[in-house]
C-alpha cells in the first residue's frame, strides 16, 4: 500500500489506500477487499470502515452541521452494505461507491429535515457547504501564491454556488476525474467539465501572472 500522498493534517481526508486511478483502472487490492467483504470477511469490513468512515463523515459535514444526522446516515450506509453484501455488484472503486450511496442518503435526509423544521440553521449550513480554503503547505520554487493571492482565490471560489464548489473540491482535492464527478453528482460528463471550467474562468484574472498583478493593483486602489 502506498503512503499518504499529501499531508492533510489534522484529518486524513484524501484517499490514501493505494488506489491508482490513472487509467481509470482499479487497484487489485481494493478490488480484492471488496470481493472479500462480499464473501463475508469481517476483516474487509473493518478495513473499509477504518479507512473511509472519517473521510465520509467529513464529506457529510459539507452538507450539514448536524453531526447526529451525519452519524445516522453513515451507520445506515454501512448497515445497508452489510445486509445486502451478497447482492452488491463488483465495484470499480470502494471510495466512489461509498461516496455515491452516502451522498444520496444524506441529501435525501437533509431535504426531508428541511421540510419538517424551520430551515434557518440549515440554510446557513448550505451556504457554508464545501467552502474552500487555499493554503500552500509547501513553499514551491517560483511560488506565486502569497497570502494575499490565496485569499483572493479562495474568496472567488467561495462565491460560486455550492454544487460548483463541491466539484472544485472533488476535482482538485480528491483528485476525481470528470466522469467520476459526473457520476457522483448525477450530471452529464459535459456538465461536470463545465463546472470546473467555469470555476477556472472565474479565476482567470488571478491565474495569469501579469493580469494578476494588474488585478491586484486595481484591487488595492479600490480600497
Amino acid at each position: 500500500m502506498t503512503q499518504p500522498k499529501k499531508n492533510t493534517a489534522p484529518i486524513p481526508l484524501r484517499n490514501t489506500y493505494g488506489i491508482s486511478e490513472h487509467d481509470g483502472g482499479v487497484s487489485e487490492r481494493e478490488d480484492l477487499i471488496w470481493e472479500r467483504f462480499k464473501a463475508g470477511d469481517q476483516k474487509a469490513l473493518t478495513y473499509i470502515f477504518q479507512n473511509y468512515s472519517n473521510f465520509l463523515f467529513n464529506y457529510g459535514y459539507q452538507f450539514t452541521r448536524d453531526r447526529n444526522m451525519i452519524k445516522d446516515c453513515l451507520q445506515d450506509l454501512f448497515l445497508d452494505l452489510i445486509r445486502q453484501k451478497k447482492n452488491l455488484s463488483a465495484s470499480t472503486s470502494i471510495k466512489y461507491y461509498l461516496m455515491r450511496s452516502f451522498r444520496n442518503k444524506l441529501v435525501a435526509t437533509v431535504e426531508k429535515n428541511q421540510n419538517r423544521e424551520k430551515a434557518e440553521q440549515e440554510k446557513t449550513a448550505e451556504n457554508e457547504s464545501f467552502m474552500v480554503t487555499i493554503s500552500s503547505e509547501v513553499k514551491m520554487i517560483n511560488g506565486q501564491l502569497d497570502a494575499e493571492k490565496q485569499h483572493l482565490i479562495a474568496d472567488k471560489l467561495n462565491e460560486l454556488p455550492p454544487l460548483q464548489r463541491e466539484a472544485v473540491l472533488l476535482y482538485f482535492y480528491e483528485g476525481m476525474k470528470y466522469t467520476e464527478i459526473a457520476e457522483l453528482l448525477g450530471v452529464k460528463v459535459k456538465s461536470a467539465r463545465a463546472l470546473i471550467y467555469r470555476s477556472l474562468d472565474s479565476l482567470k484574472d488571478l491565474l495569469s501572472p501579469y493580469k494578476g498583478v494588474i488585478f491586484l493593483i486595481a484591487y488595492l486602489f479600490s480600497l
Binding site: N54, Q62, R67, V132, S136, Y173
Partner: peptide, 11 residues
C-alpha cells in the same frame, strides 16, 4: 496542492 476544505470535522 493548496486547495483544501475550509471546514472539516471527524468522528
Amino acid at each position: 496542492k493548496s486547495v483544501n476544505y475550509k471546514y472539516t470535522d471527524k468522528l
